[in-house]
Amino acid sequence: MAITNLEKYRKDLDALLQEAGGVQNSLSYSAFGHNDFYGGLLKQLGGDEKEAKAFIKNIKPFETVYQHWYSEALPLVRQILPDRLSDFIRLYEKPKSRKDITYESYRIEDACQGLRTTFGGTVKADAKAAIPLLAQQIAIVEAIKRRFESSLFDIKQLVQADVFDSELGGAQELLKNKYARAAGAIAGVVLEGHLKQVCDNHSLPKKSGTIAVLNDALKAANVIELSQHRQIQFLGDLRNKCGHRNVTEPTVEEVEDLINGVVKVIKTIF
């Protein structure tokens, strides 16, 4: 039996929360340095030097483990807890209006770059300032986990995603059997349905359900970038070619591009 989107998100969340501990250890090791971190760890382990050394040996560079963790966590926050997305990003990205790096303006991105500022020989901000920021990001991911367990969680979008996956699977099967026009028509319906849901997610009014109108509405609201807008335009043109009888039939390659493009849209635009 194929894994559902709900099960996939739960599995991904469990992995992210398990990985978060390693990311925190990596940041602490980077922030406090080997001697201080080792001393604290040794106390926690009751003086077991062998275990402490083995533990430190497995710590990976913070910028590496964090970027992987952040890249995995960001889409989940965007999909499941969109009202906390701006907070999640703000904890990582350097403020565009920042004029000076202080403890208050320091961000996780600075820690990834190893930034450290001093004034008069005194440290103003270094990677230690990123420790509470990472803790807040992890708390947001934990909130997603709790939302899964809450009866208030609305699984409509996840169920819809399962339906879309199934329909696209049917489109791919039709394409394998050379029913290009029918396969393209199904992919177009999936694209239109997803764009409607994205508009609902952002409380955007929809004058009609056409791909072009939905696409323009999302671009006007800055939900999607120009490159994404153009890609959806391209997919909409292919869909129209499949949905209307023209002199030129849609090719297998064109419908394959349409299906692959729709798969990308439903996985990256929320």
Rank of each mutant, 00 (worst) to 15 (best):
I3W: 04
I3P: 00
Y9R: 07
Y9V: 04
D14Q: 09
L16I: 04
Q18F: 07
Q18H: 10
A20F: 01
V23Q: 08
Q24Y: 09
Q24P: 02
S30G: 07
S30C: 06
A31D: 05
F32I: 02
N35C: 00
Y38L: 11
L41M: 08
K43T: 04
Q44M: 12
L45P: 05
G47V: 05
D48E: 06
K50P: 06
K50T: 15
K50I: 15
K53M: 11
I56T: 04
N58F: 12
P61K: 06
F62T: 00
F62W: 09
Y66A: 08
S71I: 01
E72R: 15
E72I: 00
A73I: 00
L74P: 01
L76W: 02
R78K: 13
L81C: 10
L81R: 11
R84M: 09
S86A: 15
F88P: 04
R90C: 03
L91D: 05
E93A: 14
E93F: 11
R98M: 13
D100A: 13
R107C: 08
D110K: 09
L115C: 00
L115G: 01
L115M: 15
R116N: 01
G120P: 00
T122D: 10
V123P: 02
A130K: 12
I131R: 10
P132K: 07
A139I: 01
V141G: 07
A143M: 11
I144C: 10
F148N: 09
S150N: 12
S151N: 14
F153S: 00
V159F: 10
A161T: 11
D162G: 04
D162C: 08
F164P: 00
D165H: 10
D165R: 14
E167G: 02
L168V: 08
A171R: 06
L174C: 05
K176Y: 04
K178Y: 15
Y179D: 02
Y179H: 13
A183S: 13
G184R: 11
A185Y: 00
L191C: 03
H194D: 06
K196S: 06
V198K: 05
D200G: 06
K206C: 06
K207W: 05
T210Y: 05
D216W: 06
D216N: 15
L218K: 01
L218Y: 00
K219C: 01
A220Y: 09
A221E: 12
L226H: 02
Q228A: 15
Q228V: 14
Q231R: 07
G236C: 03
G243Y: 00
G243M: 10
G243A: 15
H244E: 04
V247Q: 05
P250I: 01
E253Q: 14
E253L: 11
D257T: 12
N260D: 12
V262K: 06
V262P: 07
V263M: 12
K264Y: 13
V265P: 03
T268G: 03
I269V: 12
